[in-house]
Design a protein around this nucleic acid. Structure first.
Ligand SMILES: [Zn+2]
Ligand SMILES: [Zn+2]
Ligand SMILES: [Zn+2]
Ligand SMILES: [Zn+2]
Lengths: 131, 131
DNA sequence: ATGGCAATGTAATGTTATTACATCAATTGC
DNA sequence: GCAATTGATGTAATAACATTACATTGCCAT
């Protein structure tokens, strides 16, 4: 896999996400980068778009937030469908991959001639530490 | 299952969704109900909250939209986890339930003592008719 | 009748995301 | 070298989605 060098803005955003305890909204990323010259949401969204494309970051649809990939060495694209648990108390996110689920979803789509684009699997609840 | 009688606002919102070809955003529901006296987003969101609670409507997290349940007689709560395919071309939504996927997700959560709340499964892509 | 409760009306505000347009920097082809 | 192209950036404005706050209404049980 050929790794793209990140631009300054992409690097800054990725760094913020990597060092964050949990997922962040685009606007909280913006706030954290004010001192680095960020002024507008678009600077964040543009960087995020690229990072998503590279497989370095995931978007959590159910909470409108972004999180660094758990194994960015590979870029997550190699691993097929990504699923998440999201703790609603502490914000902790766990990323996992399940081939049975993936095969099942692919089978359903294939049976109906549905051409799959992006698949979202997110479990919201309470993690072991917060129970 | 005991069916709640819907209030006027709940009934109007449910009716709009039931007669819609595809999913609708809260604000487009609002627009369709102007003539019925709706003035503010909150009227829609409050009705939607109840309809979601009753299992008559689903929220599609990945597109910020709402859709009537495919089998509202039962209330969808009886059927466990609900998954969707969403056509990005025509907007068509198909609802399905898969016990293998459900068991697999429950197993993952149980293994980690993660207490599951709501689970989202959404496949975005292109339906057979739009391919 | 009245106290409690769910639903409603309305305004204001907060949060998330995109459009539009100008500028800058690196690369390519001549 | 130098125009043309391409990708990234800066900035402002606006659109789209959702919630908070507070007043009011209608209903039901005591
Ligand atoms: Zn990942
Ligand atoms: Zn937690
Ligand atoms: Zn349903
Ligand atoms: Zn379609």
């Amino acid at each position: 896999m050929t790794t793209q060098p990140l631009t300054r803005n992409q690097g800054l955003v990725f760094d913020v996400l990597t060092h964050s305890e949990g997922p962040l909204s685009a606007y909280s990323i913006l706030d954290k980068l004010r001192d680095d010259g960020f002024r507008a949401p678009l600077q964040v969204y543009r960087a995020l778009d690229k990072l998503l494309e590279f497989g370095l970051v995931h978007r959590l649809e159910s909470i409108n937030a972004f999180v660094a990939c758990a194994h960015p060495e590979e870029g997550c694209h190699a691993h097929g469908i990504t699923a998440f648990t999201i703790c609603e108390t502490c914000g902790k996110v766990t990323e996992f991959h399940d081939h049975v689920i993936e095969d099942r979803l692919k089978g359903f789509a294939k049976d109906r001639n549905f051409k799959t684009g992006k698949t979202t699997i997110e479990i919201r609840g309470t993690c072991a530490g917060c129970a």
